[in-house]
Design a protein around this nucleic acid. Structure first.
Length: 300
DNA sequence: CCGCGTCAAGTTCAT
DNA sequence: ATGAACTTGACGCGG
């Protein structure tokens, strides 16, 4: 039996933020370099904390290198920050932890606006470049939503697939696609993933907000998503969150609801999957889960 | 020093 | 029309 692994995204609530940035008007290369160096140091501190708490998954913030894909800002960060990057690479390799990234809402590969697509391709290439410097193998992924619908979902899905072909190879080999809470269902995303030959991430919370029409048991949906993953992609990934009570449907909760999580756990407990926990209190929820389900803690 | 308006970028939906 | 939400609030001006 293999146990699932869990992790969290972008920040640790008890450590300094690895998302320092500045305003564009202050974005001189020296300033960016200084901020990025501090972000990488803080990221190392988070990964060390994760190692010490047996947390194996972490999503690295897209803001680690500020303005990295902005056309009016240039910094050769791979050279300038080589020592900091080397330290992180060693830490990741020695611990075997898995990292990922998830570009922000401005990355829309299927936009009808050419400029938006170009910006998105550059942003995705930055994500691939950073992951390449931090981890050699292709299990460290870039998670992306399909994007907008623009009144015609099938045409927009087709445009996503066409624009995927424009991506550099280093992005294509890391890109995985995720269902969202209002536009593209798990079934939509699965079809696109199969057509492109890339993995699909199943987000169970988004699915609960936006299920597809034919009722399919969660077990079956997860099974189908897992089939899109090849050996070199690493363990299939799932996203988990709960609804923030009282807020609009789709608002991520403050913390994991253990009753709901245990129900989810019963479905996935024997699967070789990695689960990203997306809640506001971050590592606190991971620790809470470890306390309630001690079997999950000891896998490092 | 602190409060709070603003910040590179897109799209959708609730109000 | 406007604002909130999205994987993550942080910056920095004005008082």
């Amino acid at each position: 039996m293999r146990l699932i692994r869990i992790g969290y995204a972008c920040i640790n609530t008890i450590l300094p933020s690895p998302n320092r940035t500045c305003r564009l008007k202050n974005a001189a290369p020296e300033r960016i370099e200084e901020l990025a160096r501090e972000n990488l140091g803080r990221l190392a501190a988070i990964l060390e904390w994760n190692r010490d708490h047996a947390i194996h998954l972490f999503r690295i913030s897209s803001e680690t290198i500020p303005f990295a894909s902005h056309e009016s800002v240039y910094l050769d960060w791979e050279t300038a920050l080589a020592p900091e990057l080397q330290k992180l690479r060693n830490l990741i390799r020695l611990t075997g932890m898995r990292i990922s990234m998830h570009p922000g809402q401005f990355t829309v590969l299927n936009s009808p606006k050419e400029k938006v697509v170009e910006n998105s391709i550059r942003e995705l290439d930055y994500h691939a470049a950073l992951l390449d410097t931090l981890a050699h193998d292709m299990s460290h992924k870039i998670v992306l939503h399909i994007g907008g619908v623009y009144g015609d979902k099938s045409a927009s899905a087709r445009r996503f697939k066409e624009n995927f072909q424009r991506l550099p190879d280093r992005v294509k080999t890391r890109l995985i696609v995720e269902n969202d809470e209002k536009n593209y269902t798990a079934a939509d995303v699965h079809a696109i993933a199969v057509d492109l030959g890339i993995p699909a991430v199943f987000d169970i919370f988004h699915h609960s907000c936006h299920p597809f029409t034919e009722k399919s048991p969660i077990e079956k949906i997860i099974q189908r998503a897992m089939e899109t993953w090849k050996a070199e992609d690493g363990r299939p990934k799932l996203h988990y969150s709960d609804q923030w009570p009282g807020k609009h449907a789709g608002a991520h909760s403050e913390t994991v609801d253990m009753k709901a999580f245990k129900a989810f756990y019963e479905i996935v407990r024997d699967l070789a999957v990695d689960v990203m926990i997306e809640v506001k209190d971050k590592e606190q929820s991971v620790l809470k889960i470890y306390n309630e389900i001690p079997d999950l803690r000891g896998l490092f």
